[in-house]
Amino acid sequence: MLPGQATRARRADERSGPSEVGEEPDPRFTFANERTFLAWNRTALGLIAAGAAAAAFLESGLSGGRLVVALPLIVLGAVLGVFSFRHWEANERAMRLGEPLPSTRMPRVLALAIAVMALVTAVLVVADLVAE
């Protein structure tokens, strides 16, 4: 197969979804993958809710202090929502082809982002208390 044909075939495969390749895996693995997808997606929704709550209720004397916390959380939530679906697809494809599950850096990125946002929020709260 020529390189162009291989790329077109891969794109067609991606459009059709992972259910068209390989063999049907054990239903328990299918369910586990779906629950993992749902858990990632709920994490995304949690970040969005946290961002909305920060925008509404965070007390900060600094101009734009609320948005400094709220916007990254909301954007990260949207990115994570999209990632969850891509990750489900990649896992489904790997399971159907009998390949190892793809690794992802997202847990590390998420942990780091939450730690940074917690630190920023703490600094804003303390700065507000000191200013009073």
């Binding site: 997606n41 969005i48 939530g77 949207a78 929502g81 999209v82 969850s84």
Partner: peptide, 11 residues
């Protein structure tokens, strides 16, 4: 696919 779409709209 409904779920990531719902996440992006919520965001």
């Amino acid at each position: 696919l409904l779920l990531p779409v719902a996440s992006v709209i919520s965001a």
